[in-house]
Structures are given as structure tokens and as C-alpha cells.
Nucleic acid binder design. Sequence first.
DNA 1: AATGAATGAGTCTTCATTCAT
DNA 2: GATGAATGAAGACTCATTCAT
Lengths: 206, 206, 206, 206
Amino acid sequence: MDLGEKQIHILNVAEKLFAKNGFDGTSVRQIASEADVNIAMISYYFGSKEKMLEALMHYRFEGFRREMDKVMSEEGDYFEKIDHMIAFMIKRIHQNRYVYKVANSEYSKQNRQVNFEKYVAQKIENYKLIEALIKRGQQAGVFSSEVYIPLMIPTVVGTYFHFYYNKKFFMTLFEVDKEEDVDDFVYTTLTAHIQQTIKKLLSNEN
Amino acid sequence: MDLGEKQIHILNVAEKLFAKNGFDGTSVRQIASEADVNIAMISYYFGSKEKMLEALMHYRFEGFRREMDKVMSEEGDYFEKIDHMIAFMIKRIHQNRYVYKVANSEYSKQNRQVNFEKYVAQKIENYKLIEALIKRGQQAGVFSSEVYIPLMIPTVVGTYFHFYYNKKFFMTLFEVDKEEDVDDFVYTTLTAHIQQTIKKLLSNEN
Amino acid sequence: MDLGEKQIHILNVAEKLFAKNGFDGTSVRQIASEADVNIAMISYYFGSKEKMLEALMHYRFEGFRREMDKVMSEEGDYFEKIDHMIAFMIKRIHQNRYVYKVANSEYSKQNRQVNFEKYVAQKIENYKLIEALIKRGQQAGVFSSEVYIPLMIPTVVGTYFHFYYNKKFFMTLFEVDKEEDVDDFVYTTLTAHIQQTIKKLLSNEN
Amino acid sequence: MDLGEKQIHILNVAEKLFAKNGFDGTSVRQIASEADVNIAMISYYFGSKEKMLEALMHYRFEGFRREMDKVMSEEGDYFEKIDHMIAFMIKRIHQNRYVYKVANSEYSKQNRQVNFEKYVAQKIENYKLIEALIKRGQQAGVFSSEVYIPLMIPTVVGTYFHFYYNKKFFMTLFEVDKEEDVDDFVYTTLTAHIQQTIKKLLSNEN
DNA sequence: AATGAATGAGTCTTCATTCAT
DNA sequence: GATGAATGAAGACTCATTCAT
């Protein structure tokens, strides 16, 4: 599906509303009104509310694997590669946090009418990339072998999300008042924390 | 608010439906029908859908702090205390995973009509408990000081949730087919992973 | 029906709420809550919401005819009798304005479930009293004969009600600000206006 | 707001139902069903039940002042002008008696959600027209000065309404059986009664 | 290609009343 | 005599989608 300017505008509006009020909590009326577009356009362009979310996810997630591949092939030792990888993941997720939020939420529902096939396929591909890196590091004797590789994803990604969903709470603890400084905090302190956590976990010494 | 048997029954039904279909995705009709109760009872007992969620959260979260306090005062060295604490947290959260899911989801919404004051107050209390333990460990020279204490919560809790929201995916990687074995996995492997992660992070050697 | 203290209390509360929000606009819940009485009591005491209104009307309208009879037998010439009668009517109606308001409103509805038999019977009796007085005056040659006797009731009563329903508007025109001064205005100026109107209408000179 | 054919149809249906059963006593379901229109159309066209009433009032009251102005500028002496004015007012009000009934009823409620600003503004304008006429008559020495001008409105309008709300009763007294003859009665006898009343009140002789 | 009107199913909540105690 | 729990019907309104143009 090739997206026109108007479609993209609608997706941007929808993304923000979904993040603010949830998928169910956002009506197509709201989206149409905020995007200054006729209500019928959503069905017209995307077919349905659900398919609009699919289009949004595709639009945002596209290119993740390719870029991550590139990042991981940058020169550096294994720990540096981990650093790059985590920094990239957090940055990418943070930039697309709105879609991820809706995606996570809808994905975990049972009788979902949203099609997550592509989303899952991408998850698998990304996991394989990470697994491959760690296994190579283990074979090289740099990384500890006593580690649950699949569970490192939840630690990286889950740390970010639990922080972000409760950012008000945590930013108070760090005495960060301004909303604008959150981005900064994510790219510096939070990223550093996750990198430190994973690297220590992978380290051989204990 | 003291809950009668019927109220508790309704809350149990609501909890599962909320977890399955989301708060907005669940109608009071559905709840009433599944609980085999007249629709009007929800308003009668709880006042509104939102207040029912508040009642549910109160019902489930009550006692957390007291129990956690108890767990942390069990004998053992600092690392054992961390082990106990994490095991307790994961167990408690896993048992109440349904409410936590709804709570997290609704909490992160903007124009929410659900009152989260108690929920937030509890978060703070729990955090203080953890912070106190770690600071004592640091003063005793057992724990590393180069650590972002507040961010350890997201690492513990976020790891669990991101695992659980995507359990289908991760259980495939661990070749666990049966739904019943998930509980087991959470209490053994996942708990071990989180304990290992946090303990390595807190360790002085690196 | 003999009314206990509690019943009367409920009727007083109901009366005010009906006047404020209309009969349909007032729920038995509201009445029960404001009267600090169990909801079931309304049905228990009166049978239904409608029958409660009937009880209220009976309670308030009782004695009207007897008193009016007495007023009209006071000594004085025919015009003085008219003065006394109008003053009495306005006073009585003003005192019971709340019930009259509901009664009027409900009475004019079509598919009403409220029984207005007694109310109508009383109307007729009152009319006969007035008619008799005027006819006597006409026979005595004091009152004009070119007058529609039945239509004088609407002129007396209607003037009061249209004034009262729009009291805010008219009190502004008379530069009366305080709500408390309305009673005074009704008993002096408004009563005088109606008396003047009817007496001129009945006068023989023109 | 420009009204289409369907909107006007809905308003006509609503008007009659409101008059019959009151505003609260009429459900949008009823209106929609009687007007053979989907329920959602009421919200779609008017926004809400309350706003529908506002639209109805606007639709019916529009043009009153302009027409009344015209009527009052017809040639004739002061008393003839009063005759014309009263005849016009009664005719206009009688034609729109349904809306007036609801408007009066809702206007006198306390916590009303209906916006009556325009309605009140119109009341004031109409009053000024009447006041001006009477004052000119007084200055010309034709009308008595011992008269409460603002209270003449309640006498004109209130007489009509109290008659109409109790038309069954009064028509019995006049031995008018057929509903169709009521219109006639209003335009002849009732109008004559009101004209006579007001003119006698304004006359200098007494 | 794009739209405003229209739809029917669905939302939560409140209603007056009754029932068992 | 009095009550709190419970009921089924109805309340106004909003939903995502479709249709005729």
C-alpha cells in the first residue's frame, strides 16, 4: 500500500490519539475531526479502523531490521556492539513509542481483529539478529554462557516500556520536571542503565 | 468498602474480561451476563464501570506492601534478600497479572476517569522499600554504587510484563507448548533470569 | 389517608423537587435521598410515584373551598368581596405554588397516570362559588352583565402563574432584586393589579 | 441552522409529543419512531434532545417581533391598536401553543440544560414594543396612568394559557363539545374577553 | 475520488418497583 | 413496619460503517 500525503496525515493523527486514549478509546470520528477529514475517509482509505492500525504499524516499523543489521555491523568489540544495538533499539522504540504502545496493547488482546502477522514476523527476525550476535560472543568466549538469551529482549524492551508508561513517577524521582527533558533522559541515563544491565549480565566475571 | 460474595464474583469476572479484551473493549453487559447478574447491579454495587475497576484494584493490591515488608525482613545476606524480594514481586504480580494489565493500560491513558491515587501511593511505598534495601547494601559495601536505583524497578517489572504480553512468542522459543507450564516457567526460569540480572548489576566486580 | 409525620416530610421534600425539576425530572431516588428515607418507602407509603403526587395534592388543596366560603361571607359590598376573594385566591395559590405548578403541568398531559378527579371536582366547586357571587352582583345591578364569567378565572389565576413562572423577568422590570421580596410583591402589587383588573372589568361604567 | 425537510418533520413530531407528554415524558426513541426516522438522526441533526428543543423554539418563534411590529403600525386609534395587538398575540401563541407549553415548562425548571437566551431576549423585545405603545397612549391622555404596565403581559398571556391548559373544563362551561370548535372559541370569545379586560383596565373612566 | 446523510447495533447509566427478610 | 438488595425496562447517546451521489 502506497500512502498519499493525506493518508499519512491521518495516520499521524490517529497514532497520537491511540497513544493518548487507547485504540478502543479513540473513535474514527475523533480522528477524522482532528485530521480535518471526512469521517467516511477512514473506511475509504484503509477499509476499517483495524486495517488503519495495521497500515500505521507497517508505516512505522518498516526498515527496522535493515537499520538494525547495519548498526550491528559497525566496527567494535562485542560489548561495543551490544552498546550500539541497545542504543539503536531504545532510540527506534522511543521514536515510535506511540505505535508500539497501541501495538503492544492490541496484540495482547484475545479476540483481536487486527492482523499482527507482519508484526510477529518482524519480532522473530529481530530476535534472530540479537541471538546470533550473542551466540557469536559466547563462542568467542567473551560472553557468559549462563544466560537466557530470549529473556534479554524483555529486559531491554520491558525496561524501556515500564519506564515510559510510568514516566511521570520516575521522572519525579530523578527530579526532571520538564516534559522536553524526557527525551534526553531516555537517550542518556535510561539507555546507559540498560546497556550496563545487559553487559554485566553477559560478562563472564562474577 | 466491604465486598460481599457477589461483588467479588463480579470483580473476578470483570478482571478476566478486562485482561482479555481491555477495559474499553469490555462492556458492562458482557460482565453482567458472564457473571450471571443483572446489568444494573454493576452501577448498584460499584457506581460505575470506572469505580468498579478502582474497587478491583483495591481488592487485588491490598496487602502488597505488608507482605513485601515481611519477605524482606527474612534472614539472609543482601543478595539473598534481593532474591526473595524479586521472587515475591514476580509471584505477586503474576498472580495479579490481569489487574496489573488493565491498571497499566488505563493508567497510561490521558483523559482517564479512573482514580489512580491509591495505586500511585502504593507504587511509591513499594519503591521506598526497595530503595532502602539497596542503599543499606551499598553502605555495607556489598552492592555497587554505580547503579540507577529507580531504574531497577522497570527492569524487574518490565521484564516480567514484556515477557508476559508476548508469552506466546517466548514460550515458542523455549519450546513450552502447554499453557499450564507457563506458570512454572515464570516461577523458575523467568524469576531466575531477573534475579541473575539484578544481582549481577548490583555486584561490585566487573 | 391519614398522614404520619414521616409521610408529610416526604411530601414536603417531593413538592420542592417536583417544582424545581418537574415530576418526570424528579426521581424517587432523589426524593428518598433528600428526605433521608429508604427508597422503598415511597412505594410502601404511597403505592407509587403517581399516587404520591395525588396524596400531595390532597394534602395541600384540602380546605380551600371551606376557607374561600368563609372569606366570601365576610361583610362588605360586592367590590370589597371581589377584593377579598382575589386576595385569598392569590395568597392560597402562592402559598401552594409548588403543588399547583406540578398539578397544572401533569394535568395538561395526555396519557397521564395521575388521578385528577378530586382536583377537578374542587375546581368546579370553586368556580361555582365565584360564579354565584358575580351573578348576585349582576342581579343587584352592581356588576356589568357583559362579561364572560368563566373566563375570569383564567384572568385571575393565569395572571398569577404567568407572572410567577417568569418572575425573574418581571422582577427585573420592577427592579426587585431579592428573592425574599417576591412574596411581598405578590401580596401587594400583583394582587392589586389583579383586583384592579377584575373590578374594572366588572364595573358598569365605560 | 438551516433546516431541511426531514429536520422540520422531526421537529413537528417532537413538538406534538412534547406537548402531549412533556419534554421529560417524551423519549427520543418515541420521536424517532413516530417520525419514522432512525434514532441516531436526532443526535446527528440536532446534537441532543435539548438542542432539538432549542431548534424547535427558534423555528417557531422566529418572526414574532417583526410581525407584531407590523400589526401595531396598522392604522387605528389607541384602543384599536390594543385590539389588534391582543388578537395577534393570541393568534400567534395559539398557533404555537405546543412549543410555548414546553418552553414555559422547561424555562421554569431550575437545573435546565436547555439554552433559553434567545427566548428571553425575544420576551424582552416584545415587552418593549407593548410598553412603548401604552406609554404613548398614556402621554396622549387616552390610557389611564394608574396601571402596572409590565403586569399586563401576564394578564394577556396568562389568561390564554390558563384557559388552554384547562380547556376541557372551560369548554364544558361554555357547552362547546367538539375539539374543532376550540379554535373558533379562542379567536372569538376568548380574544374578546382579553381585549375587553385590557381595554377597561386602560380606560380613564371608573 | 470524495462526501454528507443515514443506519442499526451498541454504549453506560438510571428508572420505578418488588422481593425476601 | 421497614429495609437493602435486586430486577428488567428504558433512558440518551455514540459507535464504525455504508450508501447514494
